[in-house]
Design a binder for these strands. Structure first.
Lengths: 702, 702
DNA sequence: AGTTTTCGCACCTAAGTGATAAGT
DNA sequence: ATACTTATCACTTAGGTGCGAAAA
């Protein structure tokens, strides 16, 4: 009743793309044409649209016949899609309907070296009332999509743990339990939906996503709690319409090096300086003898390669999310002849810093400390050097700080992918990197050593049957790659029990280009607020209850839902909460994707889910479920190895702190039951035990 | 053989929306699901997308059930689109599939008064190598769409006549025959496709369209010839996918007051000053006692209401085409509580300046002069006053120059529509407006009198059967509203024989939001390049030949096709060239829509067409066909009256210079034949004689 | 008293604008 | 020399940054 066993005993296919370190997820699902459509809202109005841009040369390639297929997908009758191809002009393959080509997305983080530099220091992101961008821009390069299929790309930011932090004695410390979560919002990339070919053409940037601490934000910005740690996530959904989002498979990627602590004012001067040195908009604060830079001191590092220098290479083909004002952050597209200026090191054979997994797990008992240390190693000494040399060797060459020449490397996406493969295979080594050496020194080594630590995205793929019972909670395993000082797997097992309707989009995203309908909400099964778990009652039936959103505003970035509770007085089917993150997957290579877990990666049937929580009565309760199933890969586990867990709960992982189950704060009476149900499901799905009752953060460790 | 008679004797429905002056075009066409898809290209890549923005509050309205219908349109099975509506939440109407609701688009030009001010002086648009926006931004307000249906909105700029101009003695003079046309590009509004509701929510702006004189432009900008006169056109296409564009019905609207002469440097100081005074980006050049403004002299008009003042009212809900950098041009949206600051006068009962038609026609022999006078009345004295008072009376009141208060007026779109109706009925009057009084005086009166001259858009609607033979050339009649000094009907009968594939979009428009496929080209029938007219041979058969575009680049604004010729070595079916413009329609009110012509406006079968030329071997030859059928409304002709022309050639119009048939420069040997064929077709279709062999512009009249 | 948040500010990028002077 | 074109410039809007003082 809780969960159909078919999800568990489905035959598993090779979950791992051979040698890539990326999850291999053949996609055969047909567009859910036969899926009951339920509650969808489409009231967006075109407005204020910065226009979309296609880079020169985008169409230069021979005409893809998939265009035709695409036409069919777009609503044309397939039979009408291909006629009389001018044979002499055709440079393309076949005219057959070409149904549902399998895809196998491989995602790499752009500017990984920059992210690593920040991560070493404990990344901080300023959140303001008016909304603030993330500075190291979240940008990914994608491969392995079905060129003809349409995809919707999304991003969200979830709590990385259950702690509140404070910056004390120049380092981040846990300062208690997390505050109530803010309403979650899913940011839909404004280009969505677009074809795989389009997405793969250049790095996909999410510059338009803005962070705010304004709980009553009306722009659709992502609302965060200051002094809390967060983990951005990236989702790929194969769907040609936003309306299908709730019923589609989400493939989720997590890059542990992109976690950060939200702040209203920078705490760590090194972070500040790193931002100033790399963010072109902060150029005015650089120590270029202009005076007036008191606070900056000696932090400026002469040899530090500035991020903006890497960028600006590709002026023409901006990033896909680039808006008019994204000076340098989006410049290193592979599309450009100069190629992505972003982390060249990143593409080299990744140094294998894997295996830290085991070590990380051993740190379980230091929960609080780990919470703090995870992102603020500013003071911690781990020598980063050991790895960089090797990685560099395999790469063309270590690019000079002043490089603009990463073109050769950037151009080869295959290279980057390849590096990932190697990563996967090298996981036997475990290296501890000295965390940032204080002040300038660490900055120097950053681009080199830090650039190629073995971080890889963790991937989770779920497929939600429309009548998904209870919701399969999946945990997003974070590849807690022991980059340098990777304290331990993050408690990324954030409760992902978010209202499915919480989608946010870039300005205008919904209104135009096929996104015209506003997905105000999605249907959910079972009335959670009534105390019944979604998986029960109507939840198990494929008859979702459509519901209308009485959304109060349409923001430039999305459709913020009013806070949970009271908004959805009627029962609805939720597809499933996405995986709360499993605790960090220590193996860097294996960490690339949760899908390696045979269970999760089984190509079909997959789980569909909305990576959000089921709406609950009160905002605080949104985090009811902490994923007990931190389906982390065992250290050193090979892709093939993961297959052993197929239908059984699988090997429990040792990371105790993985999913912190149900926060004490939120679960209400009736919800408890639901939670238990969900947890059971989780266990089944993930094959991991979900015990952890206590919050990982007892209180301030100090 | 040339053209199927069914187009001619189709029963006509009331072509005119009662009292609106707008064409009434009931739309029952089903999305061409059964239309043979042929050559389509879909290779766009997401890139550099300024994000789209949805204004806060866009979703505030009750959830539209059409959202569901929209979902069905988007590719979902209709049967699956509506389920279990949560009755208690539903504020909407019915759940029925709601198929194909008729629409009746009414389009009004935004900031008409500003346009009029410029037009009086002879609008000049700077074109640069790097691309330049139009200053009075082309912006329209739309009504009467099917809220649930999806539409693609387009804009293009076609030659207004066949002349080359020079600015001599402070006035524009014809200086010979037009230079070879540049490759045409169709600009697709980046928000396309979007629902009628979305388009109607606020004025639709085309700010992102850029003009250039760089023939090798790689951005997709619209390429124009300097010193030539052009006429922007606006198109509404009911289609939910760009791929269907070539097979869809184009409803074309022409606003005569938006014509302009392309220049590389301003010639008329008054134009310069008007731009400076109204364009916020040129604020730095205003005579605000800053000194350094030598050339500006006394042109600054104290009482002149600045365009930018009108704008800025609606900060939040930007225009639909507004990008990040569109300071003031797109601010007067009706969406805003303050309402559109744009021409309030425009909405009043339009003054009936009609009837000038006859007069204009009488000026036929002064072709050269008319060419010149049409847009450069700077020196010509025609008293504008006669009309303005009346128009003002009907309007609320003449807004004060410093008004910000047009909110009350702007808010009532119904008003604007109503005014148009009146316009239509008032066409019996013909008024000559004094052209701009020289220097400041005219500027003063501009906002008043000029603001409400009877300009209305001309509308042409065609429906192209996929197997459209030869192509039905339709002429776009320009309502040569004798605003002030409307010299005469413009030779808007520009050859619209453009390659159907010449579409340009705003940056990224193609890549995302459902526009992901790039429409690189469309199919055409018959091998034009082979010397056979499209209407012949395969043209008459419904089997279009798909062809692939070997386009060399994808520009930010579109997919520029390589210049005509050599690109499409294979035969293809072209849908039909859109109307070359009929010469000016003197009647202002009648001019609102060509559809009033019974022939053109017959609701079904309508003609489908691509408002572009069939590709020809050489760029110059693109203008092979000058529309012989300048289907202009006869002066004072009522909508019902136009019905007489239905199948017969109809009353020939007196405007000799209307369609200048085949330019001497381009037509090559084999093309000649095709041209003749097309001309014949034109005659049949338009019921107008297409004689005029000689170019309207003999040479410099002076 | 200490920490965190807010606000205005100066400084930046990005891009639209006409003037000007130099080309053609 | 004329007439038009081009590049550079100063100036603008719009918006992203961190600073620093003030507020909470």
């Amino acid at each position: 009743m809780i969960i159909s066993p078919r999800f568990l005993d489905a035959p598993m296919r090779d979950p791992v793309f051979p040698g890539t370190g990326m999850a291999y997820h053949p996609f055969h699902a047909h567009r859910p044409a036969d899926f009951p459509m339920s509650a969808f809202l489409a009231a967006a109005q075109p407005s204020f649209f910065p226009a979309l841009t296609l880079p020169p040369g985008a169409l230069t390639k021979p005409i893809p016949d998939h265009a035709i297929a695409g036409a069919a997908e777009a609503g044309l009758h397939p039979a009408l899609s291909h006629h009389h191809q001018a044979a002499h002009l055709r440079t393309l393959k076949s005219l057959e309907p070409e149904e549902e080509v399998e895809d196998d997305p491989k995602v790499t983080l752009e500017a990984k070296d920059l992210w690593d530099q920040f991560h070493k220091l404990g990344t901080e992101m300023v959140i303001t009332k008016s909304g603030r961008r993330m500075f190291p821009p979240f940008k990914v390069r994608i491969n392995g999509l079905d060129k003809k299929a349409k995809y919707i790309l999304l991003m969200d930011i979830v709590a990385a743990d259950d702690c509140r932090y404070k910056f004390h004695n120049s380092r981040w410390m846990v300062a208690g339990k997390a505050d109530p979560e803010m309403p979650k919002r899913m940011y839909i990339h404004p280009d969505s939906p677009a074809t795989g070919e389009q997405w793969m053409a250049k790095p996909v940037a999410f510059h338009k996503l803005k962070l705010t601490n304004n709980i009553s934000d009306k722009h659709g910005f992502t609302i965060l709690n200051s002094m809390h740690k967060y983990q951005p996530r990236f989702h790929i959904v194969r769907a040609n319409d936003i309306l299908k989002l709730p019923y589609s498979t989400f493939r989720t990627y997590v890059f542990p090096e992109t976690d950060f602590i939200a702040v209203t004012a920078y705490q760590n001067d090194k972070i500040t300086q790193l931002k100033i040195d790399n963010n072109p908009f902060a150029k005015g604060f650089r120590d270029t003898g202009n005076g007036r830079r008191e606070k900056r001191k000696q932090l400026t590092l002469p040899s530090l390669r500035l991020y903006e220098d890497q960028c600006k290479v590709d002026r023409d083909g901006g990033d896909s999310d680039a808006s008019s004002s994204e000076p340098a952050t989006g410049r290193e597209t592979a599309h450009s002849p100069l190629g992505p200026a972003s982390s060249p090191l990143r593409f080299g054979r990744p140094s294998r810093d894997e295996k830290t997994l085991t070590d990380s797990e051993q740190e379980l008992d230091h929960q609080e400390e780990r919470c703090a240390g995870g992102s603020s190693p500013g003071q911690d000494p781990h020598s980063p050097t050991p790895f960089s040399p090797r990685g560099e060797d395999r790469v063309k060459e270590r690019p000079s700080p002043e490089k603009k020449d990463d073109y050769p490397e950037s151009r080869k996406q295959s290279d980057s992918v390849f590096s990932i493969r190697n990563l996967e295979k090298d996981k036997s080594e475990n290296r501890h990197r000295k965390d940032a050496e204080s002040s300038k020194k660490d900055a120097d080594c950053g681009p080199l050593g830090a650039g190629k630590d073995g971080f890889s995205p963790l991937m989770v793929q779920t497929e939600s049957p429309s009548h998904f019972s209870a919701g399969h909670l999946q945990s997003l395993a974070l590849s807690g790659l022991p980059n340098q000082q990777f304290f331990s797997p993050l408690n990324t097992g954030q409760p992902l029990f978010i209202h499915p309707g919480q989608f946010a989009m870039a300005p205008g995203a919904f209104s135009a280009m096929g996104m015209s309908h506003l997905l105000a909400s999605v249907s959910g099964a079972g009335g959670l607020e009534n105390g019944s778990l979604a998986g029960q009652g109507s939840a198990s039936t494929p008859t979702p209850f459509p519901f209308h959103l009485s959304q109060h505003m349409l923001a430039s970035q999305g459709i913020p839902m009013p806070t949970f509770g009271g908004l959805f007085p009627y029962p609805y089917t939720y597809m499933a909460a996405a995986a709360a993150a499993a605790s960090a997957l220590p193996t860097s290579t294996a960490a690339t994707s949760l899908s390696r877990n045979p269970f999760l990666s089984s190509s079909r049937p997959r789980l569909r889910f909305n990576p959000y929580q089921i709406p609950v009565s009160i905002p605080q309760s949104t985090n009811l479920l902490t994923t007990g199933l931190s389906s982390t890969l065992n250290p050193g586990s090979e892709s093939s190895k993961s297959g052993s867990r197929e239908t059984s709960p699988g090997p429990e992982h040792h990371n105790h702190k993985a999913g912190s189950s149900q926060r004490s704060g939120s679960p209400k009476g009736p919800l408890k039951e639901s939670i238990n149900e969900l947890q059971n499901i989780q266990r089944l799905v993930s094959g991991l035990e979900s015990q952890r009752e206590s919050s990982p953060c007892r209180d301030s460790p100090k």
